[in-house]
Design a protein around this nucleic acid. Structure first.
Lengths: 252, 252
DNA sequence: CGCTATTTTGAGCCGCGTCAATACGGGTGG
DNA sequence: CCACCCGTATTGACGCGGCTCAAAATAGCG
């Protein structure tokens, strides 16, 4: 039932996986996480609000759809997927969250989570209790704007996935998107470990698992990527980008 | 080149097409337009900002993509379509605007219009110069919130169209959506005049024109609707809703 | 009344989903 | 350490929805 330690370890591809201390203002990822763009004094106010969450096991849920929004979360290590139930009771993978990315914005509008979020590997998060966060935003307008931006980003990101592109375009865009997110907002990385099973990718891209498998094979045949189970190497970056050219960047 | 007066007349299906005066605070549609939810005194401040636009001819542009955002517009009479150019230079119909609906929100984020908007028939609009509007919002927080709501609505509305539904579901949802919008936020109307050519509908729903034609024919064969050129009667409302059941409501 | 734009109808093809069978791994118990 | 098992991933066969190409039928307009 649990994934092996090895798998989890493999996903921690960044050497700085261990954050030196537990303060936003000194977090090496802060540059690209919630504190993005905040002046130092405001970032320090985040420290007093933030809490470190307990380590989460594979398949463990951070929260379920329908629960009231208690906090926003930032991924420290590991990876998550967020899922919703469609009108036919079928599970839909809305998206994946990698280290430094924010979780929980889906609950801001209604005050209730629209998605369930669960860990794909052994993972950990930073916790920002929502109430305290909102009290900060009332007099820290930079933070309020940052939250707005992140919400818009989330919306845009989803837009890219649902457009009527073909399987190849969708998949190429997805792989490139992952590669760009591995090093938080740094350079695109050529080596990416996919933290999620094929079925989740297929569901998220709204293509059949078999189609995913075939397109992946085709990409390898064309020399665009090399793939060994969950480890991907991007061989022909330009080629991959060309395939995905019709899909909007979905980044911000 | 111009559409006939008859066509334009046919589209003015509401008897109250002529607005008694030129004030938001006394506009019969104000209940469902920009002033929605505003207390009377704030609605009256809108009056001083609003201007009446000149009558627009079919195919005439309200603004083009790339132009700076100068004003928001509310449709008084007629109908509009908004279009964008995709990365291959191909035109994409983003949406349609009916009387009482707002135009121009696409330019708020960047200060520059993302879409071009043109009249589908002889039409007219109310003009709200953006600068003046923003000056109002700074001390009329209700208006600010109303604008936010409208933006979210726009986003949600678009989401519904791009999902991976099949042609039947998309089309049924589109027709129902139109029927609900004809009488500004009143009851769904059984008789709807489609103000746009088939090609625009097809483009907007991202299906081929031929497919649109065929599905329309099928709907008639199934007794869901009756269609005479651009005049549609919804015969079996429940049936139509059933076909579209997988598509989210897209309304607010 | 002819001309052109729009809409409908028909034939054929292709992408992708479904069903089904097979291969691969990682984990367990002997 | 190996046999076994089950969940994940790949590969093949086939059908259907919807797109494309092509042509016929209307409708709007001069």
């Amino acid at each position: 039932m649990n994934s092996s330690v090895l798998t989890a370890g493999a996903w921690q591809q960044s050497e700085e996986a261990v954050v030196p201390d537990h303060l936003c203002s000194r977090c090496p990822r802060g540059r690209f996480c919630l504190p993005l763009g905040l002046p130092l004094d405001e970032a320090q106010r985040l420290d007093s609000v933030m809490r470190i969450g307990r380590v989460m096991q594979t398949k463990q849920y951070l929260f379920h759809a329908g629960e009231p929004l208690k906090a926003l979360y930032a991924v420290r290590t590991g990876a998550f997927k967020s899922t919703a139930i469609d009108c036919d009771g079928y599970e839909q993978v809305i998206g994946f969250q990698l280290p430094s990315e924010l979780i929980g914005l889906d609950g801001v509008h209604a005050g209730v989570h629209q998605c369930s979020v669960s860990a794909l590997t052994v993972s950990s998060v930073c916790i920002f209790p929502y109430k305290a966060l909102m009290e900060m935003t009332s007099d820290v307008s930079t933070l309020a704007r940052q939250l707005m931006r992140l919400m818009c980003k989330e919306i845009n990101g989803n837009m890219a996935v649902i457009g009527d592109y073909m399987a190849e375009e969708r998949l190429a865009a997805f792989l490139l998107g992952l590669a760009m997110r591995v090093h938080p907002r740094g350079e695109l990385s050529t080596r990416v470990v996919l933290p999620m099973p094929r079925a989740d990718i297929a569901n998220h891209l709204r293509i059949a698992g078999e189609t995913l498998s075939r397109v992946l094979a085709r990409f390898q045949g064309q020399g665009l990527i090399e793939l060994d189970h969950r480890v991907m190497h991007i061989v022909d970056l330009d080629g991959l980008e060309h395939v995905s050219r019709r899909v909007p960047p979905a980044s911000l």
